[in-house]
């Protein structure tokens, strides 16, 4: 490998490790967080930042500009679909929360008596 290629190869490691960290953190958040909103928060971090860092790291290692462009396009598409899906899921959750609060106020076992 030539000198700049070696330099690029080693400089990709922080990005790849950062991506792995965000994916791990997102997965743990998905499993451990209490409600839908904070789970969505955790998962979308993995989708956008984790995948972005992985793509950046892999771009530094890739052989051709075509591969770089393809990976960046994939990242853009996943980021857009993740953001949209997150908004839709959060909105669905909020509507079902308000629906259940309006239609059956005493259904919850520990609901405060007013």
């Amino acid at each position: 490998m030539s000198e700049p290629a070696v330099w690029l190869y080693w400089s990709s490691w922080p990005f790849l490790l950062g991506g792995v960290f965000f994916f791990l953190a997102g997965t743990i958040g998905l499993l451990r967080f209490p409600d839908a909103y904070s789970r969505l928060h955790a998962v979308t971090k993995a989708d956008t930042l984790g995948l972005g860092l992985l793509v950046l790291g892999l771009c530094l290692r890739s052989e051709s500009w075509q591969a770089v462009a393809q990976m960046l396009l994939v990242w853009l598409l996943v980021m857009a679909s993740g953001a949209t899906a997150c908004q839709l899921l959060a909105r669905y959750q909020r509507e079902s929360d308000t629906d259940s609060a309006v239609s059956r106020p005493r259904a919850e076992p520990f609901h405060n008596e007013r």
Binding site: L77, A80, T84, Q87, L88, R91
Partner: peptide, 15 residues
């Protein structure tokens, strides 16, 4: 349908 879903599907269908 929510406006967000409509905007997103307008983007997805050509893709």
């Amino acid at each position: 349908a929510w406006p967000l879903l409509q905007a997103w599907s307008r983007l997805l269908a050509p893709l």
